[in-house]
Design a protein around this nucleic acid. Sequence first.
DNA 1: GAACAGTTATATCGCTCCGATACATCGGGA
DNA 2: TCCCGATGTATCGGAGCGATATAACTGTTC
Lengths: 195, 195
Amino acid sequence: MAKTDVLTLAILGILRDQPLHGYQIRKRLGAELGPFRALSYGSLYPCLRRMVEAGLIEASGEEPAGSSSASSRRARIAYSLTDPGRSRLSEELANAGASSWDDDAFDVRFSLFAHTDAATRLRILEGRRSRLSERLEEVSDGLKRMHERHDAYTAELQRHGLEQVEREVQWLDRLIENERSARGGENNGSAPADH
Amino acid sequence: MAKTDVLTLAILGILRDQPLHGYQIRKRLGAELGPFRALSYGSLYPCLRRMVEAGLIEASGEEPAGSSSASSRRARIAYSLTDPGRSRLSEELANAGASSWDDDAFDVRFSLFAHTDAATRLRILEGRRSRLSERLEEVSDGLKRMHERHDAYTAELQRHGLEQVEREVQWLDRLIENERSARGGENNGSAPADH
DNA sequence: GAACAGTTATATCGCTCCGATACATCGGGA
DNA sequence: TCCCGATGTATCGGAGCGATATAACTGTTC
């Protein structure tokens, strides 16, 4: 129960430091996660509504309802974390289960690594690595078994996919080694020590 | 109107050579496109129903309705292309518009390159390349503008994303060059000449 | 030969998410 | 002045996913 979906987590994370409008949330998230994973309003606003209902965030809007008042300010709703929201965030940041290294969750979790403790960081990186390794075997098995029933383009697509996953594994290996060698003094790295 | 979605196209493509069951369609598609892009039954069966309704495919099932008959064979429904389905497929394979190099469509189109003519192949590859180039600029701009408001992990995520896209552009460059140099004799490569 | 596990097979439900679209306001440049 | 582009909130229809239910067939093991 109470499973936090990725989008909710991403919003909790981005509201950690300051309250923001829906529009700003979208821009920030787009900037942090890249132009892939774009996030449309059709996901954002319903998710914000759900979060308000769940008590995770609070809408401190300048309400435009001023019936006869002169200014009739535009509706701009700033969302901020509530206490339950804040504790849900840290709860979620401590979780290093399989859902942390899913395809759709990993990058969000990673972008919050600055607020994740060192042990959890390591477990997530390793989990992601082993997930990708499984895939690697699957694809290369498929490639071997496919040398009948091939056409050149399908094989090329497969080969390229394999290479991409291999790259990503190498990237993870580098990060894992960094984490391991950085755990000299700190064991609770709530902020990354180096840099 | 009558915009063919990616899944429909993929199914048309996979049924081009032989009729298949839903289950087999799923397996084949999974094998051709890799373990990413998995395709669940919750998408497949509704899509098949839509396609039957649209007259693109035909369900030649051994019906299990035999009321009093002994065997009561299991329902296994083989789907095959109709004539309208076949012409929709070639129509779609000739289309080299922007929808051919979208993130979610490109790999499906590419996996059907063996049945796509040479000119269209080239246009799609080039379209995809320029789409990725836009992204490249976006991300590297973002990286530059982000050297304030950075933490080490977010920056690393960005850097890695950038590298992945760069790799893919190099891959496309190689493929484009191949296509160009292969168009010596053929101009209508309904089957790839080399191999 | 009985029991069990794994694969083949079809199908639906609830929900999330996306793309398109509509709307309104504000700042600045032609 | 007038329009354009950025800021901002919001919804609708539909596609896709994950989980789940059901069931028959196939092989293995005791």
